[in-house]
């Protein structure tokens, strides 16, 4: 094994582990905002690291790999932000565990809560 193969293999293993952890986070977390947190961060780094690893294994593909990495790093946070705002406007309010329920939801000053939760 050459040195490039060792570096690329390490990136690929790290990336696949983070992709798995992101999916596990989506499976385990209790409400949609926490799921978005786990899903977005872990799959972004996981995908970036795995694609960079393939770029190290095959250096002539590196330019296109960098394009895909930049696209993933741009698009993943935007889609999670759009989903979070859409779900808040659909009245799926975030789960709040602490005692101080009034101050923990600052976004309610823009979108006031209504009494009935609408099923979607």
């Amino acid at each position: 094994m050459s040195i490039m193969e060792i570096i690329g293999g390490t990136f690929i293993i790290i990336g696949s582990i983070f992709l798995f952890l992101g999916a596990l986070g989506i499976f385990r977390m209790p409400d949609i905002y926490n799921r978005l947190q786990a899903g977005t961060k872990a799959t972004t780094l996981g995908g970036m690291s795995l694609i960079l690893g393939v770029g190290f294994l095959e250096p002539s593909w590196m330019m296109k790999m960098i394009i895909i990495i930049i696209f993933i790093a741009y698009s993943n946070p935007i889609s999670s932000h759009a989903l979070a705002r859409a779900m808040y406007k659909r009245k799926r309010y975030p789960l709040i565990l602490s005692e101080d329920k009034e101050n923990m939801d600052a976004y309610s000053e823009v979108n006031p809560h209504e009494k009935e939760e609408v099923k979607s």
Partner: peptide, 8 residues
């Protein structure tokens, strides 16, 4: 969304 990233 997660499935898409994993598939890519």
């Amino acid at each position: 969304d997660t499935i898409t990233t994993i598939a890519v």
